[in-house]
Write a protein that binds this DNA or RNA. Structure first.
Lengths: 167, 167
DNA sequence: CAACCTTGTAAGGACATCTGACCAGATCAA
DNA sequence: TTGATCTGGTCAGATGTCCTTACAAGGTTG
């Protein structure tokens, strides 16, 4: 593969860059998660750990946030119930509904997962520079706010965000 | 949801930001692709259009690049052959092998897809500022080069990259 | 040439997701 | 208040994507 000195500069499609970066990040996450006692948490289960907070969440709402069907959400939840990470608690406000709640084990797994994410990001920040990193994050947040405003109520709860200081 | 003024700043996990941004980008891409005569190209087919160039590529190599098994690659290719986007041409250098080549229609679809990607990125650059954009791209390229060096031979071919000027 | 490696295919299964149909509980309008 | 309608959740069945295992045909090398 000799290069043509006249060739235009190579162009890497944006989505390819994001893809690759995300893949690398996620692979690191999975690697570290495998080392924990929560290694049976599969990538598919992520939607639950990402969105469910202390006060629980209805299946329908979870499906909306995760952009999957109620049926798919139901299956993921069934699986997590079997593994002891979540439970369905009758919603006091609507007898049709159930609140998907993390069990104690589930909350531990969620905290562990978040801690890993924070660690990895901390490493990368160190590696690539805090300022550039902050600039990228700002831009990303702006993009997401503008292009997919309803996509990320994925804010860590205050207690969980507290872990950021530890990392 | 009243906010606790004492609460730590909300933290959005990095992968969530990338996810959301990428989703938005990809959704725009799909929307526009649907408007073209190549609307039957499915997301899964992307691996072929992303990696196959004028001179064709063997299935095994494609599977490597796309990080899927040869069998999966084979299915995707079968499907694209049915639809008339690619063809299998016997490899003159190895009678076991076949070169996966884009047909004329396939090349048109590839060019159309790339043009759409470039348009969208151009719009976003305008929207968010060329300098910030360039900074993000640089950082992303650096990250990808460091964390996933073999992930992106996804350079557009010189001819295709030429479209960047048009967009 | 014999042993081995590589290319691609075949068969079958796992898994995540979807669509359509449905029930029970809630809500709204007359 | 009661019938029509909406909403939360589940059931059943299909699809799409990807995997593992096994293998046949063609190269490669001692």
């Amino acid at each position: 593969m000799t290069k043509d000195p006249q060739a235009p500069p190579p162009y890497v499609a944006l989505h390819a860059l994001w893809d690759a970066a995300q893949d690398a990040f996620f692979a690191e996450f999975r690697d570290e998660l495998e080392q924990t006692e929560y290694s049976d948490v599969r990538p598919t289960h992520g939607c639950v750990f990402r969105f469910v907070r202390e006060d629980g969440m209805r299946l329908t709402r979870l499906a909306e946030l995760a952009k999957i069907t109620k049926q798919s959400a139901g299956e993921v939840i069934d699986d997590l119930v079997k593994r002891g990470y979540v439970e369905r608690i009758p919603d006091p406000e609507d007898r049709r509904a159930k609140l998907i709640c993390l069990t104690e084990k589930g909350r531990e797994a969620q905290a562990t997962g978040l801690a890993i994410l924070l660690e990895i990001e901390a490493r990368w920040i160190e590696r690539y520079g805090a300022e550039r990193w902050a600039a990228m994050r700002d831009l990303l947040e702006e993009i997401v706010a503008a292009e997919a405003p309803d996509a990320v109520p994925e804010l860590a709860s205050p207690e969980l965000a507290g872990l950021a200081k530890v990392a």
